[in-house]
Design a binder for these strands. Sequence first.
DNA 1: AATCTTTTCAACCGCTCTTAT
DNA 2: AATAAGAGCGGTTGAAAAGAT
Length: 288
Amino acid sequence: MGRSPCCSKEGLNRGAWTAMEDKVLTEYIKTHGEGKWRNLPKRAGLKRCGKSCRLRWLNYLRPDIKRGNITRDEEELIIRLHKLLGNRWSLIAGRLPGRTDNEIKNYWNTNIGKKIQEGDHHSKRRPPSTTSSQPQLQEINPNPSMAMKTTSPAQTASSSVVRTKATRCTKVVVTSSAGPQEHDQSHAIAKLHPSLTPDDRPLHFSNPISEEDTNLPNFIMDFETDGNILSDFLDMDFSQLFCLQTEADNTTNTSATGLVSEDHKLYGSDSQSFAPYIGSGSLEWLCD
DNA sequence: AATCTTTTCAACCGCTCTTAT
DNA sequence: AATAAGAGCGGTTGAAAAGAT
C-alpha cells in the first residue's frame, strides 16, 4: 500500500534555502500561520516540498529559535533526558526552549554520543561540556548568533543561498571557570523547598535510580505505565533545573520564580511545577 | 599555497502516528 | 471500520568549512 509521496518532487528546489525563499516562507507564515504544509508551497509560491518548508520553519526560521552553542547546562540536561527518554529528540527538545530536535540530535551525534562511545564520559562529574572544537561561545561572545550562524535572511537581501552552518572555532580562551557549576542541585533544591515532605512524593518517582542499575527500557516501561504521570513529568519545565543552583547561590529567601539571568528570562517561571518531585528527592537521580 | 581529512549540521528520506472523511 | 491525507519523528546523507599535513 504505502502513502503517496508528499509531493511530486519534480520541478522543486532542493538543498540549501536561499534568503529569498526564507523571506517568502516567513512572510507567508506570519500572515497565515503554521500548518497545511502540503499546500503551503503552492500558496506561498515556493518551489519546495511541504515537508521541506515545515522543516525549514521549525529548525531555522521560527522566531523563538535560540542561536548559539549548546551550553554546559543544556548539555547536562540533554544527557539526563536522553537517559530517560532515549532518542526521542522531539521530547528532549521540548524541554529545551529554543532548541530544535534536529539540533539536539546533531549535537548528540557529534558530541555527547561520541564522548560516551569513546568512554571518556566515565567521569560522572560534569563532562567537558563542549569538545575542544566546541568552546562556550555563549560565555564569550556577546552575540553568539553572529558566531554560530551566518547572516539572517533579513540581513541578506539577495537570493543567494543562506549559509546557516556554524563556524568552527577552536582557539578561544574561556575565562569563566567550571568550578562553581559543580553543583549539587538537590542540595540547592532542598534549600529552596525546605517545607516539602515525603508525602509530596508522587508514587512513581519514589525510587531514585542509580546510574549503575538503571535498566532504561524497563524503567521507561514502568514510567509509561501511568500516562498521566509521564504527561505531568514532561510538562515540567526542566530548564529550571539548572537555574536552581545559581539562585541558591544568589539568594536564600526568594522563591524559585523570578529568575533573572539572560537564559532565565527565556524560561517560564513555573519551576514550582516540578519542585515537589525534586524537593522530595524523587528526582535526585536526574540531578546525579 | 595546495591538498587531503575531519567535523559539522541543514536537509532529505522513509516511516509511523494522528486526524478527517 | 477502512482509507487517505496531513503531520511529525528519527536516521542518514552530503556539502561546506576548518584543521592537518
